[in-house]
Computed example of a mutant assay.
Amino acid sequence: MSNYSVITSDFVSVSITNSGNQMTCVERRFQKGITIDDFKGKLELLTGGSPSTMSVEVYDKNDKLVCKLNEGSRLLGSYPIEDGMRIHVVDNFARQEEDLSNVEKFEISEEEYAKRSDTVKAFLEKNRLGKYNDEEMKRREEEKKKEQEAEEASARLCKIGDRCEVYVPNQPKRRATIMYVGKPDFKEGWWIGVKYDEPLGKNDGSVSGKRYFECAPKYGGFVKPTHVKVGDFPEEDYDLDEEI
């Protein structure tokens, strides 16, 4: 049990400021019977600072430093705190980050970096890992080539005007009409532009200011060819215009 006791009234009303936002000041009322550790926990909710890195200072009405609340087990009321005083929270962690932002960064040229033996690049080269493994890189290139060939083959099965169903992973299947087949500017590879039967799309057939086809807003979308199944998929009657 603590040797300190509350020497004034049970509650104290103070203003709270913090180093992260000097212009903000809030008024709060606290029980004097709580410990400084508990008090810091309440200050965390008000200022966002971590109790483990914050410093708490007490200022009187003349803005003169009265004391610092630095003993975690001591009671708040055992410090000479009175109504109207100001509690200032200093976020030491944020201050450290601010100080580090001014530290001059260490830079090294590509030539000097390549000569060093204690770098990640040197480790990868020595152990033939990643891009320094010719066999691994060849295997990746072959897989990528096969994926591109499969994507192109799927794209060539799609014709403008064809009806289709779109199967995007983790999304419900949607019926649509194919409006575009090709390689757009916004992403690499083959893409299929579709006009959905329902307003479940993301655009009106244009992306980043370039138009690929015409449709109403929210009816257009672009999907990978492997997510499109061409077939006899007539439009369903969704009764979108029905009045209730």
Rank of each mutant, 00 (worst) to 15 (best):
L124I: 02
V223M: 09
Q31V: 00
A153P: 00
K32E: 14
L45D: 15
E214D: 15
L240R: 15
E143P: 11
V90K: 10
S13A: 11
L100K: 06
S2Y: 04
R116M: 07
P225E: 05
S9C: 10
E165S: 08
K131Y: 02
G49F: 12
E27Y: 13
R86L: 11
N133G: 02
R175V: 07
T8I: 03
Y132S: 02
D10P: 05
C25E: 11
F30C: 04
P225C: 07
I192W: 00
W191Y: 14
F30D: 02
M137K: 09
S50Q: 09
K115C: 12
I178Y: 04
E214F: 13
E141R: 06
G209P: 11
I160W: 01
V66S: 01
L69K: 02
V66Y: 07
M23D: 10
L157F: 03
K68S: 13
G182S: 12
A155W: 00
Y212N: 02
R128W: 12
K144P: 00
D197F: 08
G231F: 01
E143A: 12
Y167L: 13
S2G: 14
E104M: 04
T226V: 11
G205L: 12
D91F: 10
G205V: 09
C158T: 01
R116G: 09
M1N: 10
K126P: 05
V12M: 01
Y132G: 10
K40N: 13
E151P: 06
K224M: 04
V120Q: 08
S19V: 15
A153Y: 06
Y4V: 02
C215W: 04
F213T: 02
G49H: 08
E151M: 10
P184E: 00
E235Y: 04
K126R: 10
K145R: 15
I16F: 11
G182T: 00
K210Q: 11
V223A: 01
P225L: 10
R86N: 12
K42L: 15
G182A: 06
P199R: 02
N133W: 08
V223C: 02
K32Q: 15
I36Y: 08
H88W: 10
D118A: 05
E27K: 04
K42Q: 14
M85A: 07
I244C: 12
G33I: 06
N70F: 09
R28W: 05
Q171P: 03
H88C: 14
H227K: 05
S52M: 11
S9K: 11
K40W: 02
E242W: 10
I87L: 05
E243H: 07
T17W: 06
S117G: 12
F39T: 11
D10L: 13
P80F: 00
E57C: 03
V103T: 07
L46A: 08
I244Q: 00
R163I: 01
E214W: 14
V181A: 04
V6S: 00
Q22W: 07
E142N: 04
P184T: 02
R211A: 14
K138Q: 15
I244D: 14
V14D: 02
Y180W: 07
G193F: 03
A94R: 13
Q31G: 10
G77L: 09
E141Y: 07
T226H: 06
